[in-house]
């Protein structure tokens, strides 16, 4: 990945995270880590987003929301699963209301491990996500 043809925008959704990874995602946007230097902007609108950053695992109620958000994003798009819960269900994998990681419903491109995932690894995941986005764009072109 030598250059970015455009600035990818991020849509962050908290599936059933404990807030830990969530606030680390937000911490990435703030002065110490500042992902905006990579041209990444956090948006609230799925129709503007290229990268879907999901924290937490899939449960009975948010499964529709996750699918809905993903459907609204324009192609090409990339899904980054942040934290142990988003990767596999984590510590709550056996709880009655948890169905498992995000890959139960969406094709996940990048898995970011950690409980809570550290900002450095989240940034790393986003950068890998940008790489995946580039590849998808080339394929579709």
């Amino acid at each position: 990945m030598s250059f970015f043809s455009k600035s990818p925008w991020i849509l962050h959704y908290d599936a059933s995270s404990c807030n830990g990874c969530d606030i680390e995602v937000l911490a990435c946007l703030t002065p110490l880590y500042d992902v905006e230097r990579f041209g990444v902007v956090n948006t609230g609108n799925p129709k503007h987003a290229d990268i879907l950053l999901i924290t937490g695992s899939v449960n009975e109620r948010n499964i529709d929301i996750i699918e809905n958000l993903y459907r609204q994003m324009p192609d090409p798009k990339v899904v980054v699963a942040v934290g142990a819960c988003a990767c596999s269900g984590g510590i709550f994998a056996r709880a009655y209301n948890i169905q498992g990681g995000i890959d139960k419903v969406l094709p996940v491109d990048v898995y970011v491990p950690g409980c809570a995932a550290r900002p450095e690894s989240i940034i790393d995941g986003v950068i890998k996500g940008i790489g995946a986005l580039e590849m998808k764009r080339k394929k579709s072109a």
Partner: peptide
């Protein structure tokens, strides 16, 4: 209900010595 995980049920699976780590989350 978008974040409901069922944490209180975890006591059935997790021993009391380790439940603290679940409680933290």
């Amino acid at each position: 209900g978008y974040i409901h995980r069922g944490l209180e049920m975890m006591v059935e699976r997790v021993e009391y010595t380790e439940m603290g780590f679940v409680a933290e989350r």
